[in-house]
Amino acid sequence: MSTPKARDAGEDGAGGVDDAVRALLLLMPRMVGRAKKIPVPEALQSLSLAPRHLSLLSYLLFDGPMTVNELAARLQVAPTTVSLLVGDLSRKGILERREDEADRRRRIIGIAAHQQRAITAWLAPGASAWRKALAPLTPDQRQMFIDTLLAYEAAVSGEEQT
């Protein structure tokens, strides 16, 4: 990281990259801390759900039931990884698998009806907060925000493009 004197060229110090980095270094831990404080509903507390389950459950909650391959594509992981997650969550009674009427060889994965309310209660506060934060932005601004977070994730994980 650069020293406080190293500002963006041509800027008066306000709004430089380093100022934004400072703000984000303070903001990100607070955001993560607040997200972690969203209580897991009592009905789900004993099920040992991990962060890796959240994305899968979010897709099923917001987009409805889908196949393992569809989930894998959205989560950007291998279908075998999704199969393992689905198996784990099915054994815990969180997910249900049913036959696809169009192709009986395929299984459609969905949130178990008796867990729908608890999962909605758990994930809704985060979704609501994102809607409130993103609503004032234009579609291009929202995409830039998402692209920026993806670039940050890639840089932190060492996967950034050179």
Rank of each mutant, 00 (worst) to 15 (best):
K132V: 03
A102W: 00
L60V: 11
V68D: 14
T148I: 00
G13P: 04
L61M: 09
R142W: 01
I108G: 02
G126D: 08
G33I: 06
I38H: 07
D19E: 13
D8G: 12
G87K: 14
I38Y: 03
D88C: 06
R30Q: 05
K132D: 09
L75K: 02
G33R: 07
L44V: 07
M28E: 14
E11L: 15
A9Q: 13
A20F: 00
A6G: 03
M28T: 11
N69H: 14
P39G: 15
G87R: 14
M66P: 03
E70D: 12
D140R: 11
L75V: 04
Q45W: 05
P51L: 11
Y152H: 13
S128Y: 11
A14Q: 13
K36M: 13
V86N: 08
E70H: 13
N69E: 12
A112T: 08
A35H: 10
V21G: 00
D18P: 02
A118F: 06
K92R: 12
A154M: 01
L61T: 04
T138I: 01
I109A: 08
A124W: 04
P41R: 08
L134R: 00
Q45H: 04
M66A: 10
I119D: 10
Q76T: 14
D63Q: 09
A23H: 14
Q161N: 12
L85F: 10
P51I: 07
L84Y: 13
F62C: 11
A112Y: 06
Q143C: 00
P65E: 15
Q76E: 13
L137N: 02
G158V: 05
P125I: 05
R30S: 04
E153P: 00
L44T: 08
D88H: 05
R104K: 10
R98Q: 05
L85V: 05
A72C: 09
A73Q: 14
V40Y: 03
S46F: 05
L150P: 06
L89K: 02
T67D: 09
L49Q: 07
M31L: 15
R34G: 13
L54F: 08
M31T: 02
E159C: 06
E159L: 10
T67L: 06
D100K: 00
A102N: 01
D19A: 14
L44F: 08
V40R: 11
D147S: 00
E153D: 07
T148A: 01
D63W: 03
V77N: 03
F145E: 00
R98E: 05
H114F: 07
W122N: 01
T138V: 07
A43W: 07
L149V: 09
